[in-house]
């Protein structure tokens, strides 16, 4: 009995040591050496800090460099208020339009087969692949005084360029892909079976849309609207071309930031910039939440 205990003691411990050694080598085989891991992580974090976190911090420090009172005063300027109002209005119009267009385009692509479908999918991405400045110029060519519709518009006293309609149009064009791109893969993956089931159960087209299709894609819609809104409020290039930079009238927030900065009104420039930065942060958080919902939806349909 004693013999056995004396025997088994060292046996177990050598066994454990062997296992530990084995685990160690396996760990080394599976991943890179520790030094490499640390180096890679450090580079990634440094890069993010310098290029993402630092600029954000700078925006807010500059905005508040003369205290909160100066910050609030800068935002309360009539010009600033007008820019904020215009930005919200333009965002509301373009998000609204793109919500409808995006839904229709995604519906057409995901649920029907028709000639030219691939072409349409490619076309939807066009606003992403074209420089925003070109997008703005297109509208100048169409609606400007020398443009295709310029004469007709002038005769009927309709102002599109250098006014809200032009800015809204340019923004809508630039942000068109967001809703459609969020919905197409989602709707394609869901297929048409639930809609077919609804119709065979006696639902009308509208009932099917509001009771079956829309609830299934609601997180995708919100996701698209969120990104669309962020871009609509932040758009600079296209809007800059069509806006005409009329102070207090056609300056959106991004345009005003540039103007104020060029006029050495740093506090005011960074105060408005801080609003845009906050919008970005809120968008990021909302995006994370929505992505979680979208993943859950996918999991549910997997089973």
């Amino acid at each position: 009995m004693t013999m056995q205990i004396a025997h088994s003691g060292p046996l177990i411990s050598s066994d454990a040591r062997a296992r530990a050694r084995e685990a160690l080598t396996r760990d080394n085989l599976r991943t890179e050496p520790k030094a490499v891991r640390i180096a890679i992580i450090t580079i990634a974090i440094t890069f993010l800090t310098v290029f993402v976190v630092l600029p954000l911090v700078v925006v807010f420090t500059h905005a508040f460099s003369k205290g909160i009172a100066a910050y609030l005063a800068a935002l309360a300027e009539p010009e600033a208020l007008a820019a904020i109002k215009l930005t919200l209005l333009v965002a509301a119009i373009s998000v609204g339009l793109n919500l409808v267009f995006g839904l229709v385009a995604a519906w057409a692509i995901a649920k029907f087969d028709f000639p030219g479908k691939t072409f349409l999918i490619t076309l939807i991405d066009l606003p992403f692949s074209v420089s925003p400045v070109i997008s703005g110029l297109v509208f100048v060519l169409l609606f400007g005084a020398q443009g295709y519709f310029g004469g007709w518009l002038r005769d009927h006293d309709i102002q599109i360029l250098f006014a809200v309609p032009g800015i809204a149009l340019a923004t809508t064009f630039v942000t068109f892909p967001f809703v459609a791109r969020a919905l197409i893969p989602l709707m394609q993956e869901q297929g048409t079976q639930e809609e077919e089931a609804a119709i065979s159960l006696g639902a009308s087209g509208l009932q099917t849309f509001f009771r079956v299709t829309l609830p299934n894609i609601k997180w995708g819609v919100l996701y698209g609207v969120l990104l669309c809104n962020a871009r609509a409020m932040g758009e600079f290039g296209a809007v800059s071309v069509v806006s005409g930079h009329i102070r207090g009238e056609t300056n959106t927030m991004p345009l005003l930031v540039e103007i104020l900065y060029n006029e050495y009104q740093f506090i005011a420039a960074f105060a408005i910039a801080s609003l845009l930065a906050m919008l970005a942060l809120i968008t990021l958080i909302a995006k994370t939440v929505l992505e979680r919902h979208l993943d859950e939806g996918e999991d549910a349909s997997d089973h």
Partner: peptide
């Protein structure tokens, strides 16, 4: 008649239950 008017019960291979 369309599918809606035919009053036909249809059961799909992959159930097609309304997931929400």
């Amino acid at each position: 008649q369309g599918a809606r008017e035919r009053h036909v019960g249809f059961v799909f291979q992959h159930y097609a239950l309304f997931r929400h």
